[in-house]
Design a protein around this nucleic acid. Structure first.
Lengths: 153, 153
DNA sequence: TCCCAATGTAACCATATTAGTTCTATTGTA
DNA sequence: TACAATAGAACTAATATGGTTACATTGGGA
């Protein structure tokens, strides 16, 4: 398959929080986010939990004004930070079956692929590191405005 | 999840065929390959079917000496060729749910991510393009010899 | 101290994907 | 025509994903 949509949702969440709170210290609830993403608050909280473990968001319980906010400025959170927080598995999977160890190929191919797979995954991550949530918000708003302008034609 | 193990198996298949046939015109059966991979011939044939569609292998039916061989020299088949043949989906998945189109983020984030996702996937593929099946066979044999040497200590 | 809105988390379900198995049809040369 | 292997459909088991429901927990404010 592909990289789970959980990653896309995580980026949606952080971009949404950034847009709603701006420079303020407000907290956003999982319900508000769920409406924007179009899914259930529980699913959102599961992902927020991963982001909290990676110290990307802060949660506030009890009283009024509860919910979530960014743990640091949105231009200090890269898309790679989010990837590492949400995707735990390596990009490439090895055999499910156990290759025949009497065979040269069966024995040697897994270590041989290891280096190549690592290199490819690193190249992909290097791209993600070049963008921050702040960049993503700017681009998202730009795309939104573009679509609105087209609608008015 | 991750890139399916089908890709790893496809590389195993092609490396195996290369090692067994060398420069000869011999054909390898799906049964022989299945033994090396440690799985069923049907699964192997399913993957060989994808590789055949991408013109990476040739199948021969009927008579004696039936089975599969490479469609071109192993140093002319890159790991990217195999990736494109076997993995049809984009690396990154978009939302499963439908984002709220009344929301700036819900509306703009998918096109905003599109470019970034494409760039990351391209960087990963670029790495795969640098290796051929021939390179992979060399490295696999080297790793095998290394492990055999360690065993003798 | 009690209230309460929202989080934290477990349990359960539906769905999709992956890979393994079995079976039957087909291929095309000897 | 025989036959050795592929082609492919149908079925199963295992796993992962995301959605739903339910309930305990948090902790500031009345």
């Amino acid at each position: 398959m592909a990289i789970v949509s959980r990653y896309t949702v995580a980026l949606h969440i952080l971009t949404f929080i950034t847009e709603k709170t701006g420079n303020s210290d407000a907290f956003i609830t999982s319900n508000q986010i769920a409406v924007s993403v179009g899914t259930s608050p529980v699913f959102i909280r599961r992902i927020l939990g991963s982001l909290a473990k990676a110290n990307l968001v802060i949660v506030k319980h009890g009283g009024t004004d509860t919910g979530w906010k960014l743990a640091r400025s949105s231009d200090k959170i890269t898309l790679l930070d989010v990837y590492e927080a949400v995707v735990q598995k390596p990009l490439f999977e090895s055999h499910h079956s156990k290759p025949n160890t009497d065979c040269v190929i069966g024995r040697g191919i897994q270590p041989a692929l290891h280096h190549i797979y690592n290199q490819s995954e690193a190249a992909m991550k290097q791209q993600l590191r070049q963008y921050s949530i702040s960049d993503l918000l700017l681009e998202t708003v730009a795309q939104f405005n573009l679509m609105e302008a087209e609608k008015r034609l």
